[in-house]
């Protein structure tokens, strides 16, 4: 899922300092699961902003709503009435949701409340780690199910580099060397010979480098 984290409250408050009424929109998708922008976080943020403004002597009115998914245009129109008289919309969705909101409400200033961080999963409750580099052409079958594109700090395809020591990456003793993990897994699988094949340069045109991407399934298109 998409992992996001809230921006500092002060930064959000500064962005809406001129507003009298704002709408905070949460998302019941990924950001609910990673506890950054669900119904609860939306209410906490609204309450915090209201109190902050009350203390400053410039009371703020808020409306809160949590969309099923802000990344799906069909869940945006139910907010049409609510956004009418607000001065700004604060979206607690990932970058995709923020854009759908901005796209529909062309005359509204839409503010992102979160920093969209990465695609990952949780390790323990309250901790998430990056696992997928969205490169557009999965090679996990070649690397023992460990993604070198995103988990190696240098995205090396023929690793590990000379900075790998005691199983850790050169950037930090807290970061596992992905290639050490790949080596261990391939060894356990009895497939170390696979690592002797020189992996050719990656086709990054399938990644973001080829421009914004699109996925199409014509057979499921309606109409």
């Amino acid at each position: 899922m998409i992992i996001a984290q809230q921006k500092p409250l002060k930064d959000i408050a500064a962005l809406i300092s001129e507003c009298n009424k704002v709408m905070l929109v949460g998302c019941a998708g990924c950001v609910t699961v990673c506890l950054a922008g669900g119904e609860k976080e939306t209410e906490i943020m609204a309450s915090s902003l209201r109190m902050m403004r009350e203390v400053e002597g410039k009371p703020l009115q808020t409306i809160t709503y949590t969309a099923t998914r802000q990344c799906d245009p069909e869940y945006i129109p139910p907010m049409d009435e609510m956004v009418k008289d607000v001065d700004a919309v604060i979206s607690l969705a990932c970058g995709v949701g923020v854009q759908y909101m901005a796209e529909r409400y062309t005359d509204k200033w839409v503010i992102p409340a979160l920093d969209t961080k990465f695609i990952g999963g949780s390790t323990v409750h309250g901790e998430w780690v990056e696992k997928c580099g969205l490169c557009g052409e999965c090679i996990l079958h070649k690397t023992g199910g460990i993604c070198p594109i995103i988990r190696c700090s240098k995205s090396i395809l023929n690793g590990p580099c000379g900075g790998s020591q005691y199983g850790k990456c050169e950037i930090s003793k807290d970061v596992d060397c992905a290639w050490q993990l790949i080596y261990d897994k391939m060894k356990a699988l009895g497939k170390l010979d696979k690592l002797m094949e020189i992996q050719p340069p990656k086709d990054w045109s399938k990644s973001r480098d080829g421009g914004p991407r699109k996925a199409v399934r014509e057979d499921v298109m309606i109409g």
């Binding site: 240098k154 090396i156 050169e170 050719p200 990656k202």
Partner: peptide, 25 residues
């Protein structure tokens, strides 16, 4: 040909690294 040290240790730690190809390639 070499990979190069990660930029985290240099004087531009906020830069983007490239690694379009690796040292082997």
């Amino acid at each position: 040909c070499l990979s190069g040290d990660h930029q985290k240790f240099g004087n531009h730690p906020t830069s983007k690294n490239v690694y379009d190809v690796d040292s082997m390639q």
